[in-house]
Design a protein around this nucleic acid. Structure first.
Lengths: 147, 147
DNA sequence: CTCCGACCGTTATATCACATAATGATTGGT
DNA sequence: ACCAATCATTATGTGATATAACGGTCGGAG
């Protein structure tokens, strides 16, 4: 029944981003649930797989997550044998996060599933349009807002 | 320090959408707080102002909100004298949501502030690029995902 | 006219994302 | 030797968002 009653709010880019992301996240949640992952734990696992030895602080920085929220998330991955927390010689404050073979395999399989998810939810856009979208979005979040 | 450690996840459009939206929502929250509004209550107010008499069910549909969550939101707006719940002749199940003058004025002032917010957070994009972004995003959420 | 499925709005409640604050152990610089 | 900073953890809170159930009301079918 949605006959443009949201015209007032749909003028805003942020509103359209929110609506689109809600759709994307709903599908993504279903896809990742099959691997026992959430979007945030998938992201964390992927960064660990690609950057073995990264610390929790650095991982939190990269993904823009509060490091306090990372503790249970890494616990989940570690408890499933996907990653391990290793001591860092010479620095007993930090841990090195190392992916296990199972974690690497799961990350690869999940990545394929996430790629298929993106093909599906962005099916209305051409590959060029998808590239344009990423390019524009990157310029939004990569440039800090000036006060 | 973010030297592309998130390359693995930043290939995904969804990831970029999430990062960008987080930036946008943080700024928007600050802007709307000055009017005592949250993003969702601003959206609801704007739809009510533009569609006087809309029902709670229809408002929930338009904004994709659970109608159970709308009750307190409308309470907030009503308690501030921004909108009223009016009876609907011939249908005692539903209410007509009517904007008050104060609600119309606040919606107008807040809209100007939200427009300035968008100019700020999307400053890195040209007007054409912003239109492209909205166009692409609309096509993502307007086309339902096929199972 | 009666009945029943559907609609409207409300209440109750739960889960999750995400934030802040505080703490103890450890490190590095002065 | 001292102290600020770093790392990780624990505790806790708030808001977004969902589901379930309920009572009152409406409209259509028989």
């Amino acid at each position: 029944m949605n006959d443009n009653l949201d015209a007032g709010v749909s003028q805003f880019i942020g509103y359209n981003m929110k609506r689109a992301l809600t759709v994307v996240q709903a599908d993504l949640a279903q896809v990742l649930a099959e691997f026992g992952l959430r979007a945030v734990s998938y992201s964390a696992l992927l960064v660990i797989v690609r950057t073995p030895g990264i610390s929790q602080s650095d991982l939190a920085d990269v993904l823009r997550i509060e490091k306090s929220n990372l503790v249970q998330l890494i616990d989940e991955l570690a408890n499933r044998g996907l990653v391990t927390r290793e001591p860092v010689p010479g620095d007993r404050r930090r841990h090195a996060l190392i992916p296990a073979k199972a974690g690497i395999a799961l990350a690869e399989a999940a990545t394929r599933a996430v790629q298929a998810h993106e093909d599906r939810v962005f099916a209305a856009l051409s590959m060029l349009e998808r590239a344009t979208l990423v390019h524009l979005l990157r310029r939004v979040w990569a440039m800090p807002v000036r006060a």
